[in-house]
Design a protein around this nucleic acid. Structure first.
Length: 552
RNA sequence: GGCCCCAUGGUCAAUCGGUUAAGACGGAACCCUCUCAAGGUUCAAUGACAGGUUCGACUCCUGUUGGGGUCGCCA
């Protein structure tokens, strides 16, 4: 009578090692008390998702603050969905955000002794565990075709019972070893399923690091652990990898809560201690009045690349995400006058339990704060790098005269309450184009629009006076006083009070006079501090612009 | 549909049985002001519902409702 051991040997004759060997190969980590081993384990199926960045940040900071280890594992077991090369984008984007792993899969190969860190290279390990599971009767080959499974499902639906491969519906779970061997020798295709001893009527519970005790129905499904392509499923790979990589805390999306009993079932079948789980709430979005998970397909902001392209400082994005993760973070930033995430005592217990709606306004707010307070040189480097990648024209103007661009960037920056015009790098260029001669010419050729109450003659005569008499190279208050004199001479009221008292006596208010200059110089009726703009442009260019307007 | 998770202003939320129910974003108003961006001051806006437990409930329990998730040889 052949035994399960014979079956295992038939299936995996090449496998000689045992689980014990693996235990020895991957020793327990020698870490201080309380240190957490966490990981980020994405599939190479596209660019980094905003929710993934969120989860990876949490894992990263938990490990960092507990003096533990944060590692990166590539879960490339779904060959159909894999996008070749996307792990490069994933890793690059993570590194742009400074979420660098202590060990794991990287572009320069594996770092660390718990590898390989790429699941497709861990086939041997999975086989060792599966072979042992089969000899112990806790896993078995299942010969159902997709059509067979469909039939089972259809009958379950017809009978209104729970769909799935369990109990009496697990067609092949009670096949005799002989029958299995016969089929295998006949070349019938198969998958390997885990044989669950669970009882659906009973409950299992576990202690979630964020949510506390969660009670679920016990798993009784014989899940597939090895697919017909020889690669493991997530359920199995997770259990094996996180056991042998000695992970202590699994942080993953809350969509995994319902399948946790499967994982617990396997841990217990293998006699392993399960790690703790932290199920992270999803980031949501409001869609026609309904909350739903950010979707990569529908929402541009679901991909981290969107924010990079828009030119948000990476720190702003992290700060926003941290404000969702720990709501006391915002108060902390105010109290400490700092956006230094490394210094913030992040706590996983403090995480809120429901999914936050993605709030672009709040992101913009943080981003403006961060950009406004960023030192000029630092901002310059970042803007330049962004422009190089995403806005060629902008970049060409920056490099033409870097010092000139720095002056523009520095407008009203070096003061206690700096300007907050820009939430992202892409906001900059449209607002500063007029500083460049040929761009101003373009603006001018499209026509300037002055206030309707002012006549062409009034405008021209004021401009002529400005051209002749306005101060350059002086401090702001002297310039302003001089400007007021000019305006007064040309029939403008130099104070609001004066104007309101007798509007008929004036061509306009001082604000109208300065608006004329502003429109001429910038092409717009709104701009930052005029004095700074005039000084940056220089006398020659300002007069050129005035002349162009006068003579048109 | 079964099972699970969640529930304080428009958004993010504090409170861990006793508060006039914080704070931030966003909104509104006013002040400042050569426009704008800021800044300052002020305002509006929250415990889903119904039962319990308790001297006392936003807080604990039960149910309802609502929202989300999950039920694959995808992760």
């Amino acid at each position: 009578m052949p035994t399960n051991k014979d079956l295992a040997e038939l299936l995996f004759p090449e496998v000689k090692l045992t689980i014990e060997d693996l235990e020895a190969k991957y020793p327990l980590r020698n870490l201080p008390e309380g240190a957490e081993v966490t990981r980020f384990a994405p599939s190479p199926t596209g660019f980094l998702h905003t929710g993934s960045l969120f989860t990876s940040m949490i894992s990263y900071y938990v490990a960092k603050h507990s003096k533990g280890v944060y590692f990166f594992r590539l879960e490339d077991t779904d060959t159909k969905r894999t996008i070749v090369g996307s792990e490069v984008d994933l890793l690059n984007q993570l590194s742009i955000f400074g979420i660098n792993a202590d060990e794991g899969y990287s572009l320069d190969g594996d770092r660390g002794i718990y590898g390989p860190y790429k699941q497709s290279e861990r086939r041997e390990i999975y086989k060792i565990v599966i072979k042992e599971l089969i000899s112990r009767g806790r896993a078995y080959p299942d010969f159902c075709t997709p059509e067979d499974l469909e039939k089972i499902r259809a009958s379950q639906e017809a009978n209104k019972v729970l769909p799935g491969y369990y109990g009496i519906y697990a067609r092949d779970r009670n096949l005799s070893v002989e029958e299995r061997i016969t089929k295998i020798n006949a070349g019938v295709p198969y998958v390997i399923r885990f044989k669950s001893n669970g009882n659906h009527e009973r409950k299992t519970s576990f202690d979630d690091a964020i949510r506390g005790t969660i009670e679920l129905q016990d798993n009784d499904t014989d899940v597939v652990i090895l697919k017909s392509d020889g690669l493991p499923t997530y359920h199995f790979a997770h259990v094996v990898d996180d056991h042998f990589m000695r992970t202590t805390l699994i942080s993953r999306g809350e969509e995994w809560i319902p399948s946790t009993p499967i994982h617990l079932d396997m841990y217990s079948a293998l006699g392993w201690k399960a790690p703790r789980y932290a199920h992270i709430p999803s980031i949501m979005k409001l869609d026609y009045g309904n909350k739903r998970k950010l979707s990569k397909r529908k929402d541009p902001e679901a991909a981290v690349s969107y924010f990079l392209k828009e030119g948000y400082p990476t720190n702003a994005i992290k700060v926003y995400l941290m404000s969702i993760a720990n709501s006391n973070f915002e108060e902390w930033t105010i109290q400490n006058n700092s956006y230094d995430l490394d210094a913030f005592p992040f706590s996983i217990e403090r995480m809120s339990l429901d999914g936050a709606l993605f709030d672009q306004d709040k992101l913009n707010y943080f981003s403006k704060e961060i950009l406004a307070k960023m030192p000029l040189e630092e901002e310059f480097v970042l803007v330049k790098a962004w422009a190089k990648e995403y806005n060629e024209e902008f970049f060409s103007y920056i490099v033409k005269d870097e010092e000139y661009f720095k002056k523009i960037l520095n407008i009203e920056k070096d003061r206690p309450n700096p300007r907050k015009d820009y939430a992202k790098y892409s906001d900059i260029y449209p607002l500063i184009k007029y500083f460049y001669k040929d761009k101003w010419d373009e603006i001018f050729s499209r026509g300037l629009s002055f206030k309707e109450t002012l006549s062409r003659e009034d405008i021209v005569s004021l401009l002529k006076d400005i051209k002749e008499n306005m101060l350059f190279g002086s401090d702001e208050s002297s310039w302003w006083n001089g400007f007021k004199e000019i305006a007064a001479r040309d029939g403008f009221a130099i104070s609001n009070k004066e104007y309101k008292l007798n509007p008929g006596a004036f061509k306009g208010n001082i604000s109208d006079a300065s608006e004329i200059l502003r429109v001429v110089v910038t092409g717009a009726n709104q701009s930052p501090n005029l004095h700074e703009i005039l000084e940056i442009l220089g006398k020659e260019e300002v007069i050129r612009r005035i002349d162009t307007v006068i003579s048109c």
